[in-house]
Each structure stands twice: as structure tokens, then as C-alpha cells.
């Protein structure tokens, strides 16, 4: 137990990085996932095809592979850099790219199932007043689709929070990597340290679930 108290600053710092990874990847995933969903329902076969291929590859590849590819493939081999001298900045952004690329495939599919809950007549009415396809999607279909899938999007955010631990694989000092380091330093306190980190994740994820559940009820569209 002492180890947890003594190392609290380190633990909090690690969780702060977890939060940053989650928030940044979450925002990028939402934007990119929406673009992918738009591609997959678009009338242009080329866009539909590209969206389908992307989603099926990323959704069916283990996240560890995606993140290691970003770290080694993009970072080491292709020498993608985000900072001239700070490796931890590079690794943060490389793992963010991996997390976003992966999570956006799931966001896309959740949004697509939301789009399927919007009656076809809504899009027909939008088209018949002269809205273009992008306008129909943005102004009529997506706002209703998102309202229908707020709760599943919350689940994705929870999954993303936990998935940030995979960034440890390329040396990002988030919670999981710090936990492993603390195990090495305080061998006799493994259980308390483990419980401390587990509680840390619950503190992050439980409110997210509650918030999205509440939000889902609030924004539901009456038909």
C-alpha cells in the first residue's frame, strides 16, 4: 500500500497521459470515423469501396499490430517525426495515430448503424427540397443518426480509454507502462499497485458510461 501512496505523483502523471491519449485519439476518431461513414453511404462507388476496405482492414487487425506498425513502420522506418529531439512526443503522436486509425473504423460502423435507424423518408424529404447529398447527410441524417448511437459511442470511448494501454508497446509512459515499472521497483506490493491502477481506470471510465447513458436519454429523437 505504501508503494501506491509514495508513487502517487508518478501514477497520476501516468494517468494524465492516459487521459491525453484518450481525448486526442477520441476527437480524431470521431472526425475521421464520421468521414468514413459518409464515404460508406455515399453514392460514389469509389468512395464506398475505399471506406469498406479501410474499415475491414483496421477493424480486423489487432490493435497491438496497428500501434507497433505506427511506432516501427511510421516512426523508425519512415522516420515520421513530430519533435526534433523529444522521443516521448514522437511516441505520443505515433500511438495517437494508431489508436485513431483503429478506433475510427469502429466509430464508422456505429454511425452507420445509426444511419440505418433514420427512416428513408427523412433523406427523401431532404433531397426533395433540393439539399445535395452532403447537405442531406450533414443537416438531416447524421444529426439523427448520432442521437441514436450516443450510448454505443460511449462504449467505444470506454474501450478507447482502456486501449490506450497498448501504447505501452512503443514506450509511451501511460498507466500500463508505469504499472509495469512499479512492479519491478516494488516487487512485494504487486497486488496493491495493481488495484491502484485498476481503480484509476474505473475512475476514468465509470463516469463516461454514466454521462453517455444520460446524454443518450436526453438527446433521443421523438418519432
Amino acid at each position: 500500500m505504501e508503494a501506491v501512496v509514495d508513487e502517487l505523483p508518478v501514477i497520476l502523471q501516468a494517468f494524465w497521459l492516459t487521459v491525453k491519449l484518450t481525448v486526442v485519439s477520441g476527437v480524431i476518431s470521431l472526425v475521421w470515423g464520421t468521414v468514413l461513414a459518409a464515404m460508406r453511404v455515399s453514392p460514389l462507388p469509389v468512395l464506398r469501396g475505399a471506406g469498406t476496405v479501410y474499415v475491414n482492414i483496421l477493424r480486423n487487425t489487432p490493435l497491438t499490430l496497428v500501434i507497433v506498425f505506427c511506432g516501427l513502420g511510421l516512426g523508425t522506418v519512415m522516420d515520421v517525426q513530430f519533435s526534433a529531439d523529444d522521443l516521448s512526443v514522437d511516441n505520443f503522436w505515433l500511438s495517437t495515430i494508431g489508436l485513431s486509425a483503429y478506433t475510427s473504423a469502429f466509430v464508422c460502423e456505429v454511425l452507420r448503424s445509426g444511419i440505418n435507424t433514420v427512416p428513408i423518408g427523412q433523406a427523401e424529404a431532404a433531397r426533395s427540397i433540393g439539399l445535395t447529398f452532403p447537405q442531406t447527410l450533414r443537416l438531416v441524417v447524421l444529426p439523427q443518426a448520432v442521437r441514436a448511437v450516443v450510448a454505443p459511442l460511449g462504449s467505444l470511448l470506454i474501450a478507447l480509454t482502456k486501449n490506450t494501454t497498448v501504447a505501452a508497446a512503443i514506450g509511451v509512459a501511460e498507466a500500463a507502462l508505469r504499472m509495469k515499472n512499479l512492479f519491478d521497483a516494488h516487487g512485494s506490493d504487486i497486488i496493491p499497485i495493481f488495484l491502484g491502477f485498476a481503480v484509476g481506470f474505473l475512475v476514468l471510465t465509470l463516469p463516461v458510461g454514466l454521462l453517455f447513458g444520460w446524454l443518450a436519454r436526453r438527446v433521443a429523437v421523438a418519432r
Partner: peptide, 8 residues
């Protein structure tokens, strides 16, 4: 027939 007003 089914009105199709924008529900949101």
C-alpha cells in the same frame, strides 16, 4: 404520405 418532417 408519411409527412417526413425532419424529426430533430
Amino acid at each position: 404520405q408519411s409527412f417526413n418532417l425532419f424529426s430533430h
